[in-house]
Amino acid sequence: MSPLAKYYLGAGIVSILALLIIPSTITWILVIAGLAAPVAAYFMLDESQRRRLRRIRRRQIGR
């Protein structure tokens, strides 16, 4: 399993545990913010940076 997949798995487990332990609106807001952060970062890129990001393969990201 790649290191990135381990991070995603850990984040998913922490999100589920937070929802089970603290079932409130704040937990839902935190989970949605955690999912929305990469999307917001993508939209903050210039068009040329987005094009370059789409052009490279997934395994090249992080080198």
Rank of each mutant, 00 (worst) to 15 (best):
P3S: 12
V39N: 06
F43M: 09
T27R: 01
K6V: 10
A5W: 01
P23L: 03
R50N: 07
F43G: 01
I56N: 03
Q60C: 05
A40K: 14
L20G: 12
R57V: 03
P3F: 03
S24P: 00
R63I: 11
L9Q: 13
I13F: 12
I13P: 00
G34D: 01
L53H: 12
R50L: 08
S24R: 11
A18H: 05
I13V: 13
V39K: 04
V14F: 13
I29E: 00
G12Q: 14
S2N: 12
I26D: 08
E47P: 13
A41L: 07
I22N: 09
R50D: 03
Y7Q: 08
I32H: 01
P3D: 13
A41Y: 04
T25E: 12
L19K: 11
A36G: 09
P38Y: 14
R57P: 01
I13Q: 09
P3T: 07
K6A: 14
R51G: 06
G34A: 00
Q49R: 04
L4H: 10
P38F: 15
A5P: 00
E47K: 15
A36W: 10
L20Y: 11
F43E: 06
Y42M: 07
R50V: 08
L4F: 09
G62T: 12
I32M: 05
A37H: 02
R52V: 11
S15D: 15
S15P: 11
F43S: 04
